[in-house]
């Protein structure tokens, strides 16, 4: 029984990690006032490019780096359109999704069904990894999880306690005032979109290098959209993103747990999407609170 609990919790952490990475990136992007709906596409591109590089070089760290760079590269399109040109951010994000899914399908076709020989090795953290239960669940994961946790803490500190954080937040709340204070609004927004792209790419690499260790078309399965919902759920705060991401990680694991009970697999596949709707509706009950937290200029272009 204990081993079942440990295995479920371990898998929850694994399933939640890409959601956490993606959500943290989107939080930074949206805090600067830019809405990026292209997570799904950036994730898919990260997944495929990470897989191809890892498959050919045999080094998952190269794959991870590539995914990060590719996520940044493709997000720069959205950054250009929404920040520099002041274009429609919703449509640009959708175009990004189409493009990312399309390119990943095109590049990934020769690699469908090929298993990965190497994988990210779990890192056993000394002392902490030996704690019963907790150690096995939290401190014997692979590097993705630790990176996500460290980034989450960094972003929280950055946003709440540093000058950079204040600059990012003020750009999202009142760009005109920021500009008069000598902050380059376009530069801050541009770099926040790129940061979000890098993290979405990394989240995708987790899916193909750690979660499923293979590439299939549709590997992201709507996680990019769940990430956007989680950003709202976490009220644009990095620490709250942990709760949301691992809650939804648990829902993904629940699908496999309930399968032996004879419930239709199609019904189980609906669960994460219904939970996403549920979370957003529940958040709507405390609507005023959410409105206070939302970056005031989210989705609004800033024209100099």
């Amino acid at each position: 029984m204990e081993s079942v609990i440990i295995s479920v919790l371990r898998r929850t952490i694994v399933a939640g990690t890409p959601l956490l990475l993606g959500t943290l990136g989107e939080i930074m992007t949206e805090r600067s006032g830019v809405l990026n709906l292209g997570i799904e596409g950036m994730m898919a591109l990260g997944a495929v490019s990470g897989f191809i590089v890892t498959y050919t070089t045999g080094e998952p760290w190269f794959g991870l780096t590539t995914a990060l760079v590719m996520g940044m590269l493709i997000s720069s399109l959205h950054a250009f359109v929404s920040v520099k040109l002041g274009g429609n951010q919703v449509v640009s994000g959708l175009a990004l999704t189409m493009l990312g899914l399309g390119i990943s399908g095109l590049w990934g076709k020769p690699f469908i069904g090929k298993p990965l020989a190497v994988k990210m090795q779990p890192i056993h953290i000394p002392v902490l990894g030996d704690i019963p239960l907790l150690g096995e669940v939290l401190f014997r994961q692979d590097a993705f999880f630790y990176i996500a946790v460290v980034l989450g803490l960094c972003f929280w500190f950055l946003l709440s306690h540093t000058r950079w954080g204040i600059e990012i937040r003020s750009v999202g709340e009142y760009p005109l005032a920021s500009e008069t204070q000598g902050i380059n609004v376009h530069w801050v927004r541009f770099s926040c979109v790129l940061l979000g792209g890098a993290l979405a790419g990394m989240a995708g690499a987790h899916l193909s290098l750690s979660y499923s260790k293979s590439w299939t078309e549709g590997i992201t399965a709507g996680r990019g959209w769940i990430v956007i919902a989680l950003t709202i759920f976490s009220l644009w705060r990095p620490l709250r993103a942990f709760t949301g991401a691992f809650l939804f990680g648990g829902i993904f694991v629940l699908q496999y747990l309930l399968q032996p009970l004879g419930i239709s697999p199609s019904f189980l596949a609906m669960l994460p999407y219904m939970a996403t709707l549920g979370v957003l509706i529940a958040g709507g009950v405390k609507r005023e609170r959410r409105r206070l937290q939302e970056p005031a200029m989210l989705g609004e272009p800033y024209v100099r």
């Binding site: 429609n88 990004l96 899914l101 399309g102 076709k109």
Partner: peptide, 23 residues
């Protein structure tokens, strides 16, 4: 012998050029 996703690439690129044109 291209994958079905190729059309998504076309769609994405065309949509991007259209919004850039709006500028």
């Amino acid at each position: 012998g291209l994958p079905a996703a190729t059309v998504h690439v076309f769609n994405g690129i065309l949509l991007f050029s259209l919004i850039m044109g709006d500028y």
